[in-house]
């Protein structure tokens, strides 16, 4: 406990599940971050157009409209956003390991995941 988040460091949560968005948002707020949320890749791109680049993006893979794979491809092609580190989380049981590997994310977490581990990884990224 007790990682100190730089004041105002912003994190974008991209997940189609409202419960996960809200619970993660609350935990990030508790930890002193400033969080934004999007329900799919397209919403996330729209959010990024209208906000300063976040320090970390937390990205679910299986989402309607635009999934995490396509979002990541577009983000990497975007000059202003390409360098933003991404933590991927997925509930997929199998079949996507190679595609997930190719995403070049900072960390891949399997749902359900440990909140402490996610927060300490975010803290490390934000500290560098």
């Amino acid at each position: 406990m007790g990682e100190l988040a730089p004041a105002g460091a912003s994190i974008l949560i991209v997940d189609d599940d409202e419960g996960i968005r809200e619970a993660l948002g609350m935990a990030l707020d508790d930890a002193g971050y400033c969080s934004g949320a999007a329900a799919d890749g397209a919403e996330a791109l729209a959010w990024l157009e209208t906000h300063p680049a976040p320090r970390v993006i937390l990205l679910d893979l299986q989402m309607p409209v635009m999934d995490g794979f396509e979002f990541r491809a577009r983000q990497r092609a975007h000059p202003r956003l390409a360098a933003v580190p991404v933590i991927v989380f997925t509930a997929a049981a199998h079949g996507t390991a190679e595609r997930v590997e190719a995403l070049g994310s900072a960390l891949v977490m399997k749902k359900p995941f440990d909140l402490d581990r996610m927060l300490s990884t975010i803290a490390e990224i934000v500290a560098t």
Binding site: D17, I20, M26, A93, H94
Partner: peptide, 28 residues
Amino acid sequence: LSVASHELRTPITSIQLYVQGIARAQDA
């Protein structure tokens, strides 16, 4: 089975996040 495990993991994930969040905030 793959879809079922995805669907079941999603609410489990948010339950775990709420509960661990409560514990962290309580500790703090």
